[in-house]
């Protein structure tokens, strides 16, 4: 048989499910995360059994009081609300940041950090439900796959103040990133670009492309987001944040 040729289409009759249906669909999608094993046993294996919160409080309304701006950054008022969940600043591992890890069920997240701020985190064109905590000097956000007791953490992000064992964190230069982990695999999203690394499966770095002031300049991403060469990014481009994400190396 000749090689199949394909096309990607959006059919006119294909629609999103309506309200209730969409929530159920999201829950079903979220179910797909739970069985993923946490791969970096160096940190995962040492965790003590977590407490478990059976009643999940309602998420706050999607308003500016409880949402990042549309570059994903924290306004000062929102930052002030983020509670502490431990005095030690964690090392960013490829499978976790402190007590938070991808695949972690929401009831356990809220058991570990009972006062965690529930908020809406802007990511590449949409707000995701998320929780935010301070761990020592680090501001850490865990993006959630949903808002129910069945949902899990899809990605744990060091927004600021935490670094990997190799010293990479928000603000690191692309040269430092490449020296630490080798050539990246680029993941170009709609208005963002991420770097993943074969040498560190699970670790993802969001790139802030200079001269934009945030990590979500659509024009810059379109301009520089292709290719596999750091040298194509303009000088001054840096790591916006670094995260542990399920299967990010793929």
């Amino acid at each position: 048989m000749a090689r199949p040729s394909h096309r990607v289409v959006s059919r006119r009759r294909s629609v999103r499910p309506d309200g209730l249906a969409l929530l159920l669909a999201l829950a079903a999608i979220a179910c797909g995360h739970r069985e993923k094993a946490v791969s970096d046993t160096a940190t995962a294996g040492s965790r003590a059994p977590s407490p478990y919160v059976s009643e999940i409080p309602a998420w706050p309304a999607d308003t500016s009081d409880f949402a990042t701006d549309r570059t994903g950054r924290f306004p000062a008022a929102l930052r002030a609300k983020v509670p502490s969940c431990g005095a030690a600043t964690p090392v960013v591992a490829r499978d976790s940041i402190g007590p938070l890890y991808p695949g972690q069920p929401l009831p356990i997240v809220l058991g570990v950090c009972r006062n965690a701020l529930r908020l809406w985190h802007w990511d590449d064109g949409s707000y995701l439900p998320a929780i935010a905590v301070k761990l020592g000097d680090a501001l850490v956000v865990a993006d959630m796959a949903g808002m129910t007791a069945d949902d899990v953490v899809s990605r744990v992000i060091a927004i600021e103040g935490a670094r990997t064992a190799e010293g990479i964190g928000p603000g690191s230069s692309l040269a430092e990133l490449q020296r630490a982990y080798g050539a990246p695999t680029w993941r170009r999203n709609q208005c963002t670009v991420d770097a993943a690394f074969e040498s560190r499966p699970g670790l993802v770095a969001r790139i802030a492309v200079a001269p934009s002031t945030g990590a979500a300049s659509c024009a810059d991403v379109r301009r520089y987001g292709d290719g596999n060469d750091f040298s194509r990014f303009p000088p001054g481009s840096r790591v916006e944040w670094i995260a542990a994400e399920l299967g990010a190396a793929g």
Partner: peptide, 20 residues
Amino acid sequence: HYRSDFPRARSAWRGRHIEW
């Protein structure tokens, strides 16, 4: 369809079909 290297649903794929 479950991809362990892309374990989340992505908005870019919502409503999109691969046709042959």
